[in-house]
Nucleic acid binder design. Structure first.
Length: 911
RNA sequence: GCCCGGGUGGCGAAAUCGGCAGACGCGGCGGACUUAAAAUCCGCUAUCCGAAAGGAUGUACAGGUUCAAAUCCUGUCCCGGGCACCA
């Protein structure tokens, strides 16, 4: 009755809130919708529901958004605060491979566990809006969006996606040609191929990241720096393959420029800009001896006079054409690999290069290798012949896959030139003190004909002008960003709703046949292998012929057997929450306009690991949907916030294997696990370090409110912080002290007085209201908690809590620790729920004081503190200060030479 | 190598604009209550010198600007993250 029984209080209120639908939020048009309130959309990055369940590190950001949502509700906003599950993915499928249990079963079970755990945190989600990406009613619309991408093209002039119909119209009317060919003159087959090549979702043969161990290909973003898979850390190899691609590159500029519209951490914006990697330069056309031409991309067209050789990527399609039968005169032995003919030398080098994985290329310490092709190009500016090499330091996928090498101004080219004894010409004058090799800094052009004397920028402009007038090139922009490889050979993903006809026709599955359900298969195994040359085979090829083949008008069509990558479902889930049960359309336009407003989601909180992948893909899809008129904003997430991580001690045994941290025993600084010594390390809490702390244990011992407060009190939301179970007692003591301040533990009597506070306590109360409100707005929950501690501490020793304090404190606490706040509110007999109570207002007149502490500095050092009236004049202040013994001890009684004041707080005397 | 963050007591941290460094909590020390312990309550707790009053030093390091710097500027070191032969 009287003691703080958090377990009982928390479970009871969670039940009451659920029964009353406390956190249900109506849409425009719904019954209880109040359009006079401002809208707020607060979103968490939804989790993948893993079998291990939640640990205390997962909900850090969720606690933050929940507090923010509760705060804004009390301040009178309509708050959309939903949760769901990104439930397609590898672990459920791997489990299915091992056990034969259908991934749907595993997934449903895990979702159930996650839902139970999330509900136990007392989060104020509107669970009626929950989505799971694996739900056919959800992925129906993921497939629908894919068909929108398939049914659209990117109009370069308008800079936006448009429906294919409009392209066909413009082609038929002659407004536009198909790569220079009139539509009327194009055979039927070529027309189809042309149209298919223009779509935002298209099939192309491209070098892909093939991961045999996972049995699937991966997007560039899913491959780590050392050429391994992001998930599972398996080796990844490059190989050409026909795959579905999404034309994200068409949006490269908008994805950069429209970052200006959003309030995101600068670091995330920078990462996206770097990933897109826009660089401006020029394409320069080199005549290759004899007949053909070669295009190179350079960001330094101003250095073209110093281009003394050319390098082509080993995989470049023109290599065969350039390569000569015989080594020409003047071939240096160094250039030939010691092989008799250029053809054999080039073949040997290409073979060696193709065998190298990205890791090996890396490991070689960037030693420059390459071989001469026997061919020469003509430098269009100097007219000199320059030898053409192939070398793997030039990448086929970037720019034109060929470069003009300017060793004087490029470190890589310098290294290669030294290794192969090639001429070096400086075309920018380095400063006199420069003693390095390649010079990449600013300076006037030299050895560059009509460019001489110009600085780099001017020289670039001038040479591009020259190239364009002489038909030798043009200004060009290139990007590091590649189109998004969208096929996966896995089972547990959205089927791609396309049929393949006998002549290569691509037929979209009609919208009214969506969702295209995943077929049942006997074997979920991907065709995984240790062999990098194994042929990728989609798991859906294990489906029955009934599913795989569709007959339309007597013609047999084969279904697309690849599935979508895991990122697909998370590209648009924030839209589905708005109207999660709509079976007519993706989202109702009126509801979408209301909740997304002018700038999209008002606060999106999640880990920084999604800085590139998820956030770039989602922005891309959103822009396409915007172009096609399905959503109203240019950007999906107006404000992004990256929460930190919970870190924890972890332990490795002798072999470097992590052991369960919970079972490690410490004795006088020595750590042991099952009697063996282990080494303490430190890192992000999670399965891989085996250092997870289960929230259930904390709930049992301290309760939900304590855990919520603890995670917030540890530090600012955006910094990582070490978990320390022993520190939890601090916030737990706070709640118990709060309880004892309000409730007599023996009798259960509510210890609230009839009269309000006065004096210092009243001032403190209103200061707390102001400070907590301010902290809440700025997501400074750690300091908000500290302010509440102070107010609570001031109540200790007071017989009864003054009525105004009793009225305010539970409301201030309610977003942070909703259960105990609701219990106190209810025990005091207050009207309604504290959840829907108004946020307290601060009476500013009460916190304006009539005296202040004036700090007196002498020569910049604090020497005394004096209470002064708020409106004190400088003259009085100086007189007061000079009257102080402590001040006089440092002024030696002399008059100050100079007085600086910020009255009534600071008086600075210089003597 | 390049690009972002960050570095404050024994520990987690705080410090709107350049204006009292260390709020709040953990831990520690001392005290009250208790037969005792736990819980609770009270006090102290940056470092050094000092019995104290007080003084000196102190926000990674070295400089600078300023009456005044954790905060601004220059350089260096360390930690974390991203990118990495991108022409």
């Amino acid at each position: 009755m009287g003691s703080y029984d958090f377990t009982e209080i928390e479970s009871r209120w969670q039940q009451v809130w659920a029964d009353q639908g406390m956190y249900r939020v109506p849409n425009p048009g719904d019954q209880n919708f109040d359009e006079s309130k401002p809208k707020k959309y607060f979103l968490d990055m939804f989790p993948y529901p893993s079998g291990a369940g939640l640990h205390v590190g997962h909900p850090l950001g969720y606690i933050g958004t929940d507090i923010f949502a509760r705060f804004h509700r009390m301040r009178g906003a309509n708050v959309l605060h939903p949760m769901g599950f990104d439930s397609f993915g590898l672990p459920a499928e791997q489990y299915a491979v091992e056990t034969g249990v259908h991934p749907r079963i595993t997934t449903e079970k895990n979702i159930e566990t996650y839902t139970r755990q999330l509900k136990a945190f007392g989060f104020s989600y509107d669970w009626d809006r929950m989505v799971a990406t694996t739900d056919p009613e959800y992925y129906r619309w993921t497939q629908w969006i894919f068909l929108q991408l398939f049914g659209a093209w990117f109009d370069e002039e308008q800079g936006k996606a448009r429906p294919m119909d409009q392209l066909v119209e413009e082609l038929e009317s002659g407004l536009r040609s198909a790569d220079g060919v009139m539509w009327q003159n194009l055979p039927e087959l070529d027309r189809r191929e042309y149209l298919d090549s223009q779509r935002l979702a298209y099939i192309d043969e491209v070098p892909v990241n093939w991961c045999p161990a996972l049995g699937t290909v991966l997007a560039n973003e899913e491959v780590t720096v050392d050429g391994r898979s992001d998930r599972g850390n398996y080796p990844v190899f490059k190989r050409p393959l026909r795959q579905w691609m999404l034309r994200i590159t068409a949006y490269a500029d908008r994805l950069i420029d429209e970052l200006d519209l959003v309030e995101w951490p600068e670091s995330v914006k920078t990462m996206q800009r770097n990933w897109i990697g826009r660089s401006e330069g020029a394409t320069i056309i080199f005549d290759v001896e004899g007949h053909t031409q070669m295009r190179v991309f350079t960001t330094r067209p101003d250095t073209v006079f110093g281009a003394t050789y050319m390098v082509v990527a080993p995989e470049h399609p023109m290599v065969d054409e350039i390569t000569k039968e015989m080594w020409p005169d003047g071939t240096k032995p160094l250039w030939t690999l010691g092989i008799d003919t250029p053809r054999d030398a080039v073949a040997a080098y290409r073979l060696a290069a193709s065998r190298k994985s990205d890791i090996e290329r890396q490991a070689e310490d960037r030693q420059k290798t390459g071989v001469f092709t026997g061919g020469y190009a003509i430098n269009p500016l100097t007219g000199d012949p320059v030898p053409i090499f192939i070398a793997d330091y030039v990448l086929v996928g970037y720019g034109t896959g060929a470069i003009m090498a300017v060793p004087g101004q490029d470190e890589r080219d310098w290294e290669f030139a030294e290794a192969f004894d090639l001429p070096i010409v400086r075309t920018v004058q380095p400063p006199p003190e420069f003693d390095g090799d390649a010079y990449t800094g600013p300076g006037p052009a030299i050895n560059s004909g009509f460019l001489d004397g110009l600085d780099i920028d001017a020289a670039k402009k001038r040479i591009i002008q020259w190239l364009e007038t002489n038909g030798a090139g043009m200004g060009t922009v290139t990007y590091k960003l590649r189109d998004w490889l969208f096929s996966r050979q896995r089972y547990w993903g959205e089927p791609i709703p396309i049929l393949h006809g006998p002549n290569g026709e691509l037929i979209p599955v009609p919208e009214d046949e969506l969702p295209l359900l995943l077929p049942e298969v006997d074997d979920y195994s991907p065709h995984a292998s240790d062999d990098e040359h194994a042929e990728p085979t989609p798991t859906l090829s294990n489906a029955s012929d009934d599913w795989k083949f569709v007959e339309i008008d007597g013609v047999s069509y084969e279904r697309e057997l690849n599935t979508m990558p895991q990122w697909a479902g998370s590209c648009w889930y924030y839209l589905r929450y708005i109207d999660s049960s709509d079976d007519e359309r993706l989202v109702d336009p009126d509801m979408e306009r209301y909740w997304m407003g002018d700038s999209g989601v008002d606060l999106y909180v999640g880990g920084v690991e999604h800085a590139v992948l998820h956030l770039l893909y989602a922005r891309f899809w959103h822009k396409v949907l915007n172009d096609l008129g399905h959503v109203g904003t240019k950007e999906p997430f107006g404000r992004l916030f990256n929460q930190g991580y919970i870190l924890a001690d972890a332990y490795q045994d002798e072999r470097g294997i992590y052991v369960p941290a919970a079972d490690v025993v410490e004795d006088d600084g020595i750590f042991t696990y099952e009697g063996e010594a282990v080494i303490p390390v430190y890192g992000k809490m999670g399965k891989s370090l085996k250092n997870s702390v289960n929230p259930d244990e904390i709930f049992d011992e301290y309760g939900v409110d304590t855990l919520r407060l603890y995670e917030m009190f540890m530090g600012p939301l955006d910094t990582s912080r070490p978990w320390s179970t022993k520190d939890i007692v601090g916030v737990h003591r706070f709640l118990q002290r709060l309880w004892r301040n309000f409730i007599d533990e023996d009798t259960g009597e509510v210890l609230v007085s009839d009269g309000p506070s006065d004096g210092d306590l009243q001032v403190l109360l209103h200061r707390t209201i102001e400070a907590v409100g301010h902290d809440m707005e700025n997501l400074h929950f750690n300091t908000a908690v500290a302010r509440l501690f102070e107010l609570n501490n001031a109540l200790v020793g007071i017989e009864r809590v003054p009525s105004d304090v009793a009225d305010v404190l539970p409301r201030l606490l309610s977003p942070l620790a909703p259960h105990v706040a609701e219990e106190l509110w209810s025990r005091m007999g207050k009207e309604g729920s504290v959840v829907t109570a108004d946020w307290p207002l601060c009476d500013k007149s009460l916190i304006a004081e009539d005296t202040a502490t004036m700090v007196v500095q002498v020569n910049g050092k604090v020497r005394d503190r004096i209470e002064v009236p708020i409106g004190i004049t400088e003259e009085d202040a100086v007189a007061l200060a000079l009257g102080s013994e402590r001040v006089r001890a440092h002024t030696g009684g002399a008059q100050p030479r100079k007085v600086i004041s910020r009255l009534p707080n600071i008086l600075s005397l210089v003597v």
